[in-house]
């Protein structure tokens, strides 16, 4: 600017113009500092260096890998391996202790809870729901009603061997007869005993229901497994009929359906699919959902 004697200046601002003019409108020259522009050029040069060092251009079936052959995927793989190694060490501790001792060690407990939660989401949630809330035919694991027992050890056994699992010799097994379908009880008898079952848990009965007949039918056919008072038997996995919880619904038609065709829920034996430490963690996690005994 200084030294340019021929420069054109804008009268109002006193600033030099670039000499560009469009229909009488002139462009003021408010120049950038030279170092600023040089930095801009330097960044362009830098990008060429980037092409050489880092992966850059795509090719037909691959890409230029750059001299250091960087890959974010490989970076993740290394981190995952490190994580696995770290977890393996922790899991080893969990594998060594007795199941019952886990809850008294805060560190192992939090590890088991974290592992159990993750494994539950992967393996159990499809049937039991993410929070273990269950649905019709799939028990709610948050409540205190357990078909096969709700102690830590009993839950662990159920997890290991499953219920009516076809691929495990030690699976928990029992069968309810299909009283209606197999002709053991007539249709009206099924309805009568269904009303009796509803009465057991304090629910209203249908008009014309004969309580004495219901009691007799129950004693003859059901009490063997469900007990005289319908309190169930954990050895057989027979549910308590006198409490507020029913797995297959508590309406009269639900119970008629159950007595007619029987119910036989299946749970896989997990020891074929999951390692011992994961099953241990799952037992602790399920026991901690709220219903554990």
């Amino acid at each position: 600017m200084a030294g340019h004697t021929t420069e054109d200046r804008d009268h109002i601002t006193g600033t030099a113009t670039t000499g560009h003019e469009w229909d009488g409108i002139k462009e003021l020259n408010t120049p950038l500092p030279r170092w600023w522009v040089n930095i801009f050029y330097a960044t362009i040069l830098w990008s060429f260096g980037y092409w050489v060092v880092y992966p850059s251009w795509p090719l037909v079936s691959s890409h230029l890998t750059g001299v250091i052959a960087y890959s974010s995927r490989a970076e993740v793989a290394v981190e995952l391996d490190a994580l696995k190694a770290k977890r393996a060490a922790q899991a080893a501790d969990l594998g060594k202790v007795e199941l019952a001792a886990i809850k008294s060690d805060p560190k192992l407990l939090s590890l088991a809870m974290a592992q159990g939660k993750a494994a539950f989401g992967d393996n159990c949630a499809p049937c039991h729901g993410l929070g273990g809330a269950g649905s019709k035919g799939y028990p709610n694991l948050n409540d205190d009603d357990w078909l096969w027992g709700g102690s830590l050890g009993e839950i662990h056994t159920t997890l290991q061997n499953g219920i009516r699992s076809s691929n495990d010799d030690k699976t928990r097994i029992s069968a309810m007869p299909a009283f209606g379908r197999d002709g053991i009880l007539k249709k009206d008898e099924v309805r009568t005993v269904a009303n009796f079952v509803r009465a057991l848990s304090g629910q209203p009965v249908e008009a014309g229901y004969n309580a004495a007949a219901g009691a007799k039918l129950f004693a003859d056919n059901c009490a063997a497994c469900h007990g005289d008072k319908g309190l169930g038997n954990k050895e057989l996995g027979s549910p308590n009929l006198a409490d507020a919880i029913t797995l297959y619904g508590s309406g009269i038609e639900d119970i008629v359906e159950t007595v007619t065709n029987a119910r036989a829920g299946v749970m896989p034996a997990w020891n074929a699919r999951l390692d011992a430490v994961t099953i241990k963690s799952l037992a602790v996690y399920v026991h901690s959902l709220g219903g554990g005994k």
Binding site: D8, G19, H20, N29, P31
Partner: peptide
């Protein structure tokens, strides 16, 4: 009116 050849105008300034 512009009397300057625009090529002569410094568009960037060196730090003084």
């Amino acid at each position: 009116m512009s009397t300057t050849d625009s090529n002569d105008i410094p568009l960037y300034i060196s730090a003084k």
